[in-house]
Design a protein around this nucleic acid. Sequence first.
DNA 1: ATTACTGCAAAGGATTTGCATGTGA
DNA 2: TCACATGCAAATCCTTTGCAGTAAT
Lengths: 141, 141
Amino acid sequence: MQGYRLTPQRHLILDIVRKAGAHITPEQVYASVYKQNPAISRATIYRTLDFLCEMRLIHAMQWGDRTYYEIAGDAPHHHLICRQCNSVEQIDHATLALLIETIDKQHHFSVDMDHIALFGLCRKCRSSSGATKQPAALQSN
Amino acid sequence: MQGYRLTPQRHLILDIVRKAGAHITPEQVYASVYKQNPAISRATIYRTLDFLCEMRLIHAMQWGDRTYYEIAGDAPHHHLICRQCNSVEQIDHATLALLIETIDKQHHFSVDMDHIALFGLCRKCRSSSGATKQPAALQSN
DNA sequence: ATTACTGCAAAGGATTTGCATGTGA
DNA sequence: TCACATGCAAATCCTTTGCAGTAAT
């Protein structure tokens, strides 16, 4: 083993994940890649996404049964995702830090808080909600 | 439409999920079902699991990219799952309620707290950890 | 020159679906 | 009875892999 290589494919894929405002799926990455270079295969997308995760250049997270990626390196933050309108709100680390501490004290358990997504109802949907009881999920990587 | 039917398959599957101490996957359910009645198909497992979720008799949750089920109706509780030794600890609703309230006040966002799993390191693994940087996840339904 | 990386196509595993048959209410 | 459920097999969907060819360093 000599080291990792910076190929155009990796360059392009990293760029796409970076530019994606929100979280992006492998398939969405592929669609973007395809426009610029149809020769790049899905296998490369998946392998590169894995690779970039290992390199810690991007983060992976599971929502429901899909994997989403986003560029790494931002200040630690988490998400509040509305299960009704799918809006995404950011929430700073400090707020959740309280929870971490509490659990640490009570259970001597240190929660991984790299990146968490909390599902629920946002302000708007809360008032106009028909109370559709649906999944709340939280994932991270 | 006349109403739903209580078939032996549904009976059996519900029973298996109930008796499973921890969370159980469709495949595990199938294995259990198979022992008692090899004629029951996987399709039925999946369809019944979905059905039981809609009936709110069981809960579904995603861990990583797998779906787990558990019997519903217990007092609301959540889980602390060690990513090292896979031990599962229960955590009561009250602890997380604090977080809900905080987020409610700060963001006017009501988090779904039906059932949440927090990943991290348990007491034991914390001390003896080689700090394997790995996924933290939280899921619910 | 190495040997990591890629593309292709095929394999994989989990879950879903169409359709004819079976069965609970 | 007869609409809902089931079994079977094929189909999908997302993701991974083997292998031979390609290219970064």
